[in-house]
C-alpha cells in the first residue's frame, strides 16, 4: 500500500517535472535517489514482488476463489467428519484439502489475505498517524519551543514511555479486552502498540534536524517557529519513520494473527483470517498438521516481504551510505 502510493507519487512528481522542464535529465531528489538505489537492490525487488503478489491476491483473490470460503461443502458432501478425525487432504478439486468444518482450505487462505492486509495496513496507519502527531508535536516543542516546549515534550514523552514500557502484545490484549473483540479493536490495539515507536523515532529525528544549519538559517530570516517545524524540520525527519512504517507492517500482520489466535479478532461467522485459521487448526494438529502450516507459511512470507522491503528502504535512505 505504502509502496503503491509511493510509486504513484513518484510518477506524478516525475510527470510534473517533465512537463515543466524538458531538458532536466538529472532531476534527482532525495526520494528519487533512494528509489533508484532500491531498484538496484535484489532484496528490495524480492520484497516488492512478494508484496505486489500479496496485494494482488488480497484485492482480486476473493472474487476468484473456486469455492465459497464460508460454506461447509465437505460436511454437506459427507467427506469431512472432523469429530471422527477425518479431514481429507489435497485433491485435484480441493488443492489444499478441507478445514475442520469442511470448508475449502485454499479458498479460505486466499480470502483471508484481504482481511489480513486491511487490518495490517489500517492498524499501521493508525499507529503512524497518532505516532507522527505525538512525535511531531513533541519534537517541535523540544527542538524549537523553548522552555514551555520542553515541558510539553516532557509530558508527551512520559505518556509515550508508559505505552512503551508495556510489552506490545499485552498492550494489544488489554486494548482488545477493554474494547471487546472485533476487527476494529484489533486495528486499534495493534496500532496503539506502534504509536510510541513512531513518536519516539520522529521526535528524535526532529531534534537532530533542529540543530542543523538550515534551521538556523530559516530562523535568521524570521520564519515563524511552527512554519519551520512543518515545512523544514518534519520533511527532513520523515525518512526513518517511513522505513519504520514498512517494518511495522510486518509486525502488525503477525500481531493481528496473534490477536486472532487468542480469540480477540474477527468474530464474524465464517470469515477467514490467517490468525484465526491458525487458532482453529491447533485442535487438529494431530490429524492434519498442514492446516496450521498453510496460514503460518502465508503469514511468514508476507511478513518476510515487508521486512525485506523495509530493510532495503532503510539502506537506501541511510545518509551514511549516500554519497
Amino acid at each position: 500500500m505504502t509502496l503503491a502510493s509511493g510509486q504513484k507519487k513518484e510518477k506524478l512528481d516525475r510527470l510534473g517535472e517533465l512537463a515543466a522542464v524538458r531538458d532536466d535529465e538529472q532531476g534527482v531528489s532525495l526520494w528519487r535517489d533512494a528509489f533508484r538505489r532500491l531498484r538496484r537492490n535484489p532484496a528490495a525487488i524480492v520484497g516488492a514482488i512478494i508484496l505486489a503478489l500479496f496485494v494482488l491476491v488480497a484485492i482480486v483473490g476473493p472474487f476468484l476463489v473456486p469455492y465459497d470460503p464460508a460454506a461447509p461443502i465437505g460436511v454437506q458432501d459427507g467427506v469431512v467428519r472432523s469429530g471422527q478425525g477425518i479431514i481429507p487432504g489435497p485433491s485435484s478439486d480441493h488443492w489444499l484439502g478441507y478445514d475442520h468444518q469442511g470448508r475449502d482450505e485454499f479458498s479460505r487462505l486466499i480470502a483471508g489475505s484481504r482481511q489480513t492486509l486491511i487490518v495490517g495496513v489500517v492498524s499501521t496507519l493508525i499507529g503512524l498517524t497518532v505516532g507522527v502527531l505525538l512525535g511531531g508535536l513533541s519534537g517541535a516543542a523540544a527542538g524549537l519551543g523553548g522552555r514551555w516546549g520542553r515541558w510539553v515534550d516532557n509530558i508527551l514523552m512520559r505518556i509515550v514511555d508508559m505505552l512503551l514500557s508495556v510489552p506490545g502484545l499485552l498492550l494489544a490484549v488489554s486494548f482488545a479486552a477493554i474494547l471487546g473483540p472485533s476487527p476494529i479493536t484489533v486495528m486499534i490495539a495493534v496500532g496503539a502498540v506502534s504509536v510510541p515507536i513512531f513518536a519516539r523515532l520522529l521526535r528524535g529525528s526532529m531534534i537532530a534536524q533542529s540543530n542543523r544549519d538550515y534551521v538556523l538559517a530559516a530562523t535568521s530570516l524570521g520564519v515563524r517557529r511552527w512554519k519551520i517545524a512543518i515545512s523544514h524540520v518534519i520533511p527532513n525527519s520523515l525518512a526513518p519513520v517511513i522505513v519504520q512504517a514498512t517494518l511495522t507492517l510486518a509486525t502488525a500482520i503477525i500481531e493481528v494473527a496473534a490477536l486472532s489466535f487468542l480469540g480477540l479478532g474477527t468474530q464474524v461467522l465464517g470469515q477467514p483470517e490467517w490468525g484465526l485459521m491458525l487458532a482453529e487448526a491447533q485442535q487438529y494438529l494431530g490429524i492434519r498438521p498442514a492446516l496450521a502450516i498453510y496460514p503460518a507459511v502465508a503469514i511468514i512470507i508476507t511478513a518476510f516481504g515487508f521486512t525485506l522491503l523495509g530493510e532495503a528502504m532503510r539502506e537506501a535512505l541511510d545518509p551514511k551510505l549516500r554519497k
Binding site: D213, Y214, L216, A217, S231
Partner: peptide
C-alpha cells in the same frame, strides 16, 4: 549569510 551554503539550505525543498 552563512558559511556553508549546502547545509544552510533545506535539502528536501
Amino acid at each position: 549569510i552563512f558559511q556553508d551554503p549546502l547545509s544552510s539550505l533545506n535539502p528536501v525543498i
